[in-house]
Structure formats: structure tokens, C-alpha cells
Write a protein that binds this DNA or RNA. Structure first.
Length: 707
DNA sequence: GCGATCAGAT
DNA sequence: CACATCTGATCGC
């Protein structure tokens, strides 16, 4: 939930998404989308009264948000005070102080946020700089790079501050299956059920909020069956949605809600109470859209989980994952970033620590100077307060991000000292910066390798968690050589290529990346198309560490859980993932067969699945409320879906195995198989020998010429 | 009686 | 799997 206070530092005379208390006195109001937690104070008597006094006081929002707001009678009084601004249309607004007569012009641009219908981000440009308020957003990796209005020419705009939706800004939400993946999973589940006959209906157990509409429209489009909803008048002017929903209960797909009445659902009845004419009982399955996430080490991308006899959860997220947030921010690289949301169990500082490395303010300030291979060995510290967190500070992305930033912003590459504020007091953190980009990067990767070697062994779980917070979203989580090397080479390639292409995602595939050079399944061809990389299989292929075989990660299953064997199965009976000892999952292999394209910011499926993702049997099972024995069969062949933390504790053997693979692989690749940077020569073996000896002893290194 | 706030539930 | 909302209790105006 947003805890954005309503005002931005740079433009304190406007109020966004919060309209109570001191925000009341704003010169203009902005609403990013129509969710209640962003509308606080919006119908308060005080505000209502203020509108009556000030005829030129306006609320700015997208046309869709305006429509949704005004169709709610409680907000009808805004009618004369709302100005809809078209998306992607820079619009000048005069902020007038009616008392002092003071006037300030500001240019605002609404950018699609992909959160719910009408949701936008606000880009403000004015005398106090350019700032971006994201509202709530879900943007897939690379999408930000395609937003023209965030660019000037072919460069990203110089953004002072980002006020960011950090709902899932926690490494545990590393990956959330893409909208396309989730949609395909749901479509296939629904298909499997409703095809069994006209009395088989599905109930989508959606919350009372906007955001599920694209689910409805896709289902309707796919099956030619309108979705039953309680109300549709808010969409009366949105034919694209309206034509896919209905208030007629006689349909096989329902998303109706009912003033909570327990006994209603117990007889597998629909909230709307729909019955068949001939009293044949309806066979209802419920699908509850819920956010599912996967840690970076999880290779599962199961989007449907069976939670009871006839109930399922389907992956669905309104917000960007950790990975997507990092991609977003890494692209924008503002001076400052302010979290709008503090995830549960996290502190503001936790979130800020994650975000900081992406801020120019951070890498502009104190630190880092480094020479080729010069101070590779970090002096061993005996200071007990020097924790792994320090290690993260020293060896995370700051400097590299900075260097890349300089390139992408057209700065000339020079040797200079970059200071890093929070570590400036620690001398040993100073690293010499080489003149040449390739040398810099190689040096950096070796440094990281060294430290990783030392630190990753014998780390406890918490330390590992700490590390993860700094990981690049493009690689798997582990603290071995392989991981860090991949990350650094990634950076190296960017630097070496000297890419100026700011319209392409820096983490994306336009820039050669580590996996390109190694024996991973990804070919240069499919790397060249960022779209494809993201959506063809619905996965970010490059987010998988090439060190791990991923051949089996794409098989489709349906999840079912053991608790369905107990006598009483209910919607609530099996909440949470922890108890899903047996899980049959809807996998994503077949998704590749489906072509998915994105219209506007919502995905629409191109029809034509060749195959049934679900087995007939697995779905039919749900209908057999008394037959509870054959779950064993499914459970035995599938893996449980459990939180990462659980998996750690419960599956240490598998964990060990992973480590072993990673270590052996990374050993060879990081030390000997690093491709030469363009223009750089690979050291000959005597030189290597020398280098390694020096490294081992921690003595200073001589340059090639000196040798 | 209305709103703000909190706890609890879904 | 936690997002966004609703309900009900309590308190204050």
C-alpha cells in the first residue's frame, strides 16, 4: 500500500494520490489511478468545500481514470474539476496561487503504468527539474526503454527524482511470471473446464478493484463467452471492455462478487446464485488471482496452483517484481529515488539500500579509484563490524553503473575518482580506476571473484540473503565466482561496446551480454530481439544463469495440493504456499506455442493453442468431489511450490548440488574462459602465472609494459 | 450521524 | 503469498 505522503520535494505545490491534511492546500491535484488507497481524502467534505470556493482548482488524471471516477456517484462532485490528459501528451499546466498570485508552469506527461485501467505515471518537468512519479505500476523488463517520452533524442531524460512503486522491492519477489504467462495459464485452465460442458462454469474470485479487466476481455475473446460481473456501468464508455462483460448471469465465466456469505460458496454455488433451469447442479471451479513469485534460484514458473477440490490460484500481479523494478530504475538512473511503498517486514532503509545503487547521487559521491589489477586483493579486515553488508557495498554495481551512465549520457571517458559516500571512511575500499574500459571491467570482475570466493564460502543464509539484494536481475542468485563474473562481464560488454543506444534496455539484449559469449542456449539471434526474449516463451531467458541447465524449467503442470485429500476442502482451507506439499503445476512449455502480443499495455492473446496444457484427467478430477485418492499419482511426479526460505531449509541436499555445479562451472569460466574485450589481448600463460601469484600474495601488480 | 482510524477478514 | 477492499468497533466532533 502506498505510503507516499502526497507531495514531492521538487514540486510541493501539487498533491498526488493523497488529498487530505496538508495536501488539501495544493494548487493542483493529480490522480494516478482509481484505487482507493490512492484516493485518500478525495471525497472528504473539506476538499469538496474547497472546490466550491476555487473554481480553477483541478484534478488531473487520464481519461479512463476520469471516467471511472465520475461514474462513482460519490465522486460525481468532481465533474467540473477534473481535467483528463491524454497519455503520452506533454501538457503544460499553470500552478496558480490564488492568494499570492504567484504562478508556476509545469509540464506534465502521463505515461502508461500497466497497473489497472487508466493507471499512469506522471512525468513532471519544470524549474525544479524533471521528476517521475510512478504511481503503482507493472512494467515488464525493457518496457521503460520503449517509452519515447522518457527520452530526449536518443537519450534518457535527466531525471532528478523518481517516486517509485516499491511494493515488491524485495529480493524474495525476484521474479513474477509475466502477464502473458499468467494469462495463458488461466486461459488453459478455464478452457479445460468449460469445454466439459455447459454446466461447467468458472468463478474468478477477484477483489473489488480495477485491474482484472484484461483478464476478462481475454477470456471473453478467447472463448466467446462474456464474463458475468456485478456492475458494468463504469465501462459504459469503454466498448473494448464493455463488450466482454455482462450482468447476465447465464454464462460459464463469472467474476461476480457477493456480499460475503459463507454458505454460498460451500455448495459450489456462484456468488450470483445462478442456477440451471433444469436444476442440474453446476460444476463450479474457483480461480483466485493471487500474486505468486519466485526467487531467483527457482526455475519454476508455475502460474496455476490447485488449492482444493475445485479451487485454484492463478498468478496475477498488479505490480512489478523486484527484477522489473531494478530494470526500470537501472534504466532511468535518477539522482534520487523515493520509495512509495515499504514492503511488509521491511524498513524504509532496507528499500533505500536496494534503490541507492541506481542513483547517480550515490555514485557521484565519494569513492572508488582503481588501476588495472592494482589493488585486487582486499586487505583482510579484522574489524568485526565489517560485515558482509560492507562487502556488498564495495562490490556492488555503483561504480560500474556510474561508468556506464557516463557513457550513455555522452560523457567522455576519463580517469577520475568517484567517491562513495557511505564507505568513504574505509580506505581499503578505494579502488584504482583504469583508463581503458575493458581493463576496468576485467579488473573489476576479478576483484569481485576474489571476494566472492572468500565470502561465499561458509556464508549463512542471512548473508546470502543480503547478497541477493544487490544482485543483478539478469543472473541467478548465488555468491560464487560464476555469478559475479557473469555480472561483471555483463558490465564489461556494455562498457566495451561503448553503446550509446539508450533506447535499448541496458540490461537487455541489444547489448552483448555474458551469455552471448558462453555456451548457453541463447543464440545471438534471439538476443537481438528484446521483445522475443521477454515474451515468446513468456520468460526472461537471460535471467537464467547459463551455468544452470534450464531444459526442464519449461514443462507445464497443474498444481494440486495434498489437503484436497482431507475431508473438508474449502477456498480458505489451503491458503498459503507452505502447505502445498503436493503441487501439480501448469507449466510454460506450451506457452511457447502460443503467440502473444501486446496491444496498448495489456497483452492480448493471438488465438491458436495447439495443445491442451491441462490433462483432461487432472481437471476432471476437480469435479469428483468424493474421489480423493488419486492425488497421489499427480503429487508424486511434481515438485512442491514453497517459499525460497522453506526450500532452503527443507532441501539442503538439492541446494548443495546446485552449489557444486555452479562452483565447478564458474571456476573454469571465470578464470580462463573470459572472452577478450574488444581491443584487449588475452594474457599469455607466463603472465597469467605471474598475475595469479601476485593475487595469491596480495602484492601489487605491474602493468603489461612493466612486465 | 459522519468521518477517521484500527483490527480483522477475504 | 500480502493487494485492495470491505466490515465492524471505537472514538471524536
Amino acid at each position: 500500500m502506498s505510503s507516499f505522503p502526497g507531495r514531492m520535494k521538487e514540486y510541493p505545490t501539487i498533491a498526488i494520490d493523497k488529498f487530505d491534511k496538508e495536501n488539501l492546500s495544493a494548487r493542483a491535484y493529480f490522480l494516478s489511478h482509481c484505487h482507493k488507497d490512492h484516493m485518500k481524502g478525495l471525497r472528504a467534505p473539506l476538499l469538496k468545500r474547497r472546490l466550491q470556493c476555487k473554481l480553477k482548482l483541478y484534478l488531473y488524471c487520464s481519461p479512463v481514470t476520469k471516467e471511472l471516477l465520475l461514474t462513482n456517484p460519490k465522486y460525481a462532485f468532481w465533474e467540473k474539476h477534473i481535467i483528463a490528459i491524454e497519455i503520452d501528451t506533454p501538457t503544460q499546466i499553470s500552478l496558480l496561487d490564488e492568494i499570492t498570485g504567484e504562478k508556476e508552469d509545469i509540464l506534465v506527461t502521463l505515461l502508461p503504468a500497466g497497473h489497472c485501467p487508466g493507471s499512469v505515471m506522471f512525468l513532471f518537468q519544470g524549474l525544479n527539474g524533471t521528476v517521475l512519479y510512478t504511481g503503482d505500476f507493472r512494467l515488464a523488463k525493457g518496457e521503460v526503454a520503449r517509452m519515447e517520452l522518457l527520452h530526449s533524442g536518443n537519450r534518457v531524460k535527466d531525471i532528478e527524482s523518481v517516486y517509485l512503486d516499491t511494493t515488491f522491492c524485495d529480493p524474495k519477489y525476484f521474479q513474477i511470471p509475466s502477464r502473458e504467462e499468467c494469462l495463458i495459464g488461466i486461459l488453459e485452465l478455464v478452457r479445460s473446464w468449460i469445454k466439459m460442458g455447459p454446466y461447467h462454469v468458472v468463478w474468478l474470485n477477484c477483489k473489488a478493484a480495477y485491474g482484472y479487466e484484461y483478464l476478462f476481455t481475454n477470456l471473453s475473446e478467447e472463448f466467446g463467452i462474456k464474463v458475468h460481473v456485478n456492475k458494468q456501468d463504469m465501462f459504459k464508455n469503454m466498448p473494448d471492455i464493455l463488450c466482454h462483460i455482462t450482468t447476465d448471469r447465464r454464462t460459464q465465466i463469472h467474476a461476480c462478487r457477493h456480499p460475503v456469505n459463507e454458505e454460498f460458496m460451500q455448495g459450489n454455488r456462484l456468488p450470483c446464485g445462478m442456477r440451471t433451469d433444469d436444476n442440474v447442479p453446476l460444476r463450479v471451479i474457483s480461480i483466485k488471482p493471487s500474486t505468486m513469485w519466485f526467487g531467483e534460484r527457482s526455475r519454476k514458473t508455475n502460474v496455476i496452483v490447485r488449492t482444493g477440490e475445485s479451487s485454484y490460484r492463478a498468478c496475477f500481479s498488479f505490480h512489478s517484481s523486484y527484477c522489473e523494478i531494478k530494470d526500470f530504475l537501472n534504466y532511468i538512473q535518477p539522482m534520487y529515488v523515493y520509495p512509495n511503498v515499504i514492503p511488509l517486514g521491511k524498513t524504509k532503509k532496507n528499500v533505500e539500500d536496494i534503490l541507492k545503487p541506481f542513483c547517480r547521487s550515490n555514485f557521484d559521491s565519494p569513492v572508488v579509484l582503481y588501476k588495472p589489477l592494482g589493488t585486487l586483493k582486499r586487505p583482510k579486515t579484522t574489524d568485526p563490524s565489517n560485515t558482509d553488508e560492507d562487502c556488498v557495498d564495495l562490490f556492488d554495481d555503483h561504480s560500474l553503473t556510474y561508468l556506464r551512465s557516463k557513457i550513455s549520457r555522452g560523457c567522455k571517458w576519463t580517469s577520475e575518482i568517484v567517491k562513495e559516500e557511505n564507505v568513504s571512511s574505509k580506505d581499503h575500499r578505494n579502488i584504482d580506476i583504469p583508463i581503458g574500459p575493458s581493463e576496468a571491467s576485467i579488473n573489476f570482475s576479478l576483484q569481485k571473484n576474489y571476494v566472492d570466493c572468500e565470502e561465499s564460502n561458509g556464508e549463512d543464509e542471512e548473508d546470502e540473503e543480503d547478497f541477493k539484494e544487490d544482485e543483478s536481475p539478469t543472473v541467478h542468485s548465488n555468491t560464487t565466482n560464476g555469478y559475479m563474473t557473469s555480472k561483471n562481464l555483463n558490465e564489461e560488454n556494455k562498457v566495451a561496446s561503448g553503446s550509446q543506444n539508450v533506447t535499448a534496455d541496458p540490461e537487455d539484449d541489444a547489448v552483448p551480454k555474458w551469455c552471448t559469449f558462453f555456451h548457453c542456449a541463447i543464440t545471438k539471434d534471439n538476443l537481438s530481439d528484446p521483445q522475443e526474449c521477454v515474451s515468446a516463451s513468456g520468460e526472461h531467458k537471460c535471467s537464467q544463469s547459463p551455468l544452470l541447465s534450464d531444459s526442464d524449467s519449461d514443462s507445464t503442470h497443474i498444481s494440486s495440493i495434498n489437503s484436497s485429500q482431507s475431508t473438508h476442502i474449502s477456498e480458505q482451507g489451503s491458503q498459503g504456499w507452505d502447505n502445498q506439499a503436493d503441487t501439480l503445476l501448469l507449466s510454460t512449455q506450451e506457452k511457447a506455442a502460443a503467440s502473444v502480443c501486446t496491444l496498448n499495455r495489456y497483452p492480448y492473446l493471438v488465438l491458436g493453442f495447439g495443445e491442451q496444457v491441462f490433462t483432461e484427467a487432472s481437471v476432471a478430477e476437480a469435479a469428483q468431489t468424493n474421489d480423493r485418492d488419486h492425488h497421489d499419482e499427480t503429487s508424486s511426479v511434481t515438485s512442491p511450490v514453497r517459499p525460497v526460505s522453506d526450500r532452503r531449509k527443507g532441501n539442503s541436499q538439492g541446494e548443495e548440488g546446485d552449489h557444486a555445479i555452479l562452483k565447478s562451472n564458474s571456476q573454469s569460466s571465470s578464470d580462463f574462459e573470459i572472452p577478450s574485450s574488444p581491443g584487449a589481448e588475452q594474457p599469455k600463460s607466463p603472465v597469467l602465472q605471474y598475475l595469479y601469484e601476485r593475487l595469491a600474495t596480495g602484492e601489487p601488480l605491474m602493468t603489461d609494459k612493466q612486465l
